[in-house]
């Protein structure tokens, strides 16, 4: 009983703070009489979002599809590469530093090229979303595969386990917590990738809505799109986090004391 109220509080408190902050912003903006085209009142933004929820959802659905596609392909490639890096040292020594270095490249800057190469369709956006996930996810999952400890390796070698058996019973389970973190990082990145790609040329998706609203100085609409998209992105991140925690808890045992 006591635990449940604690959990409830842990869940409610951030939301209470969040809405408190919005109310504070509302009050300040009203006092300063800030013009709407600069910064609209939170109450107007929410009203605008509610009024246009059908339109926004329609475009959000498209963006979300691009992001999910990129998430899936980007992470699949990341896990496969992470595994290959753990298997062959020459490949790791050659490629891994490149992958690490690529993280410093502002991938979003190549959005215009992707637009040129793949056209205005969904494919280019998915590729952008995939690319932006791929590099950090590869680095994280490579570290995961490298976590397989030497003692476990000795044990499996002593009983004559094949490479496949070693992969199945040690390398993969050791990597699962890291792969799950890669998924979590990717969950928010993939939305960014898809939207950035849409900003540089699209006829649908939330990126398209944002571009149009900003050209026409419809600040309320701009913020409405931002709010709905953020909430959806947050929900997706939370879902991935929940699923990966459920799945990974078995593999990431620690002696950590329960948190008070």
């Amino acid at each position: 009983m006591k635990l449940e109220t604690a959990k409830l509080r842990q869940w409610l408190l951030p939301w209470a703070y969040f809405f408190g902050l919005l109310i504070a912003v509302e009050i300040v903006l009203r006092l300063l009489q800030t013009p709407e085209y600069l910064l609209p009142l939170p109450s107007k933004v929410f009203a605008g979002a509610a009024a246009k929820i059908a339109l926004i959802s329609e475009h959000l659905g498209i963006t979300f599809a691009e992001a999910i596609l990129g998430f899936a392909v980007g992470n699949l490639c990341a896990v496969v590469f992470g595994f290959l890096f753990s298997l062959w040292r020459p490949i790791r020594q050659g490629f891994y530093p490149i992958v690490v270095g690529m993280q410093a490249v502002p991938i979003v800057a190549i959005a215009p090229f992707i637009q040129i190469w793949f056209g205005p369709g969904i494919m280019g956006k998915a590729i952008m979303a995939g690319l932006i996930c791929y590099f950090p996810a590869t680095v994280i999952s490579t570290n995961g595969f490298a976590r397989a400890n030497r003692d476990g390796m000795f044990l499996l070698q002593s009983i004559g386990a094949s490479q496949w058996q070693i992969f199945k019973s040690l390398r993969l389970p050791s990597a699962i917590p890291s792969i799950m973190s890669a998924f979590q990082v990717s969950a928010s990145l993939c939305m960014i990738g898809a939207i950035v790609a849409e900003l540089s040329g699209a006829s649908e998706g939330v990126g398209y809505l944002i571009v149009r609203a900003s050209y026409e100085f419809r600040t309320v609409d701009l913020f409405a799109v931002l709010v709905v998209t953020s909430l959806a992105s947050f929900a997706f991140f939370k879902a991935v986090e929940f699923l990966s925690n459920v799945y990974a808890s078995k593999y990431s045992f620690s002696y950590a004391a329960p948190v008070k």
């Binding site: 476990g152 000795f154 044990l155 009983i159 058996q165 019973s169 040690l170 593999y251 045992f253």
Partner: peptide
Amino acid sequence: HKIGYVFQKPVFFEWLSILENTLLPAKVA
């Protein structure tokens, strides 16, 4: 699979039960 080994530092896979851990060499063999 002719070798059985007990290492100085006990090695166990935390994600497998004691039975599954014990079973591992038999499964591999």
